[in-house]
Amino acid sequence: MWDRARLLAAKHQAGCPERAEGCPRCHLALAAALAIDVPATASLDEDDAPGEIVEPDAGSDRYAILNDLLPHAVVAVADAAVGDESAQCGYGWVCENGTTGHGASMAHSSGETEVIGICTAALGVLHRSLDSPIVILCDSLEAVTTVNRALETCDPAVAHRTVVFPEGRQLLANLMPYRDRVQVRWLKGHIGHDLNESADALAAVALRHATGRIPAAVARKEQAHILRTLRFAQSEPPTAA
């Protein structure tokens, strides 16, 4: 399956007219093509991460296959950053429909930081997408597992070992009423995924501002630059081969 996914992605990437826009929906066609060639008895190894995205091998390849993503799902990527010298953290999220969010919070670990980012992203997208299912991608397997366990049990308390501060627990509790509409998936980080890179950059700027390293005016300027770069990457016309 891994080899077939890599070959399909490489073949698709060579001639896709949507390549410059990041192929926002091409994973659906790739997944369908992959399913045709995978025997019904095929299964992932037991060590594979739950909800893992099957992706091509090359680190520079941006294509990832979500083989069961609903066609009308709204997808967003969340990321977070935590400082070494304080409990302050920054988070950022970017949705494929163009909406974004970022801010600062308190966290005792990188795991809790990412949980805060996931919850904030999910709630932000939910408030803008009243009926659609929501898929939040994050490159922290610990955070993805933690949030999914809370959603499955409808009990934020199961995350108590990862989420310590009251703010993070409240965000999880706020997400519980929407548990039937939210999926949280793992996404390999830093593979050239536009939304992932932008969410990471927004989180880093939010952290620098929260810890006093840059003033608010500089933070706003950097955040605006990140969003302009993202929109340019998404709207750039395909280049001739």
Rank of each mutant, 00 (worst) to 15 (best):
A216P: 06
R220F: 04
L207K: 01
V182W: 07
A217N: 12
P215H: 04
R185I: 01
S198H: 02
K188Y: 15
D180I: 12
W186E: 07
W186S: 04
D180P: 10
V218T: 14
G212T: 10
D194K: 11
D180L: 15
P177T: 15
V205T: 02
R213T: 12
D180K: 14
D194L: 09
K221E: 10
A201N: 00
A217M: 11
A203S: 07
S198L: 09
Y178F: 11
A204C: 07
D180H: 11
R208V: 05
G189W: 05
Q183S: 10
A201D: 06
Q183E: 11
M176L: 14
N196Y: 04
M176G: 06
D200A: 07
G212I: 08
N174R: 12
L195V: 06
L172G: 03
G212N: 12
L175M: 10
V205E: 02
R220I: 10
D194P: 07
I214W: 01
R179D: 04
P177E: 14
R185M: 02
Q183L: 12
R213K: 15
R179V: 09
R181M: 10
A206Y: 01
L207S: 00
A201G: 04
R181I: 07
D194V: 05
L175C: 08
P177H: 15
A206Q: 06
V184D: 03
R185V: 09
V205C: 02
I214K: 09
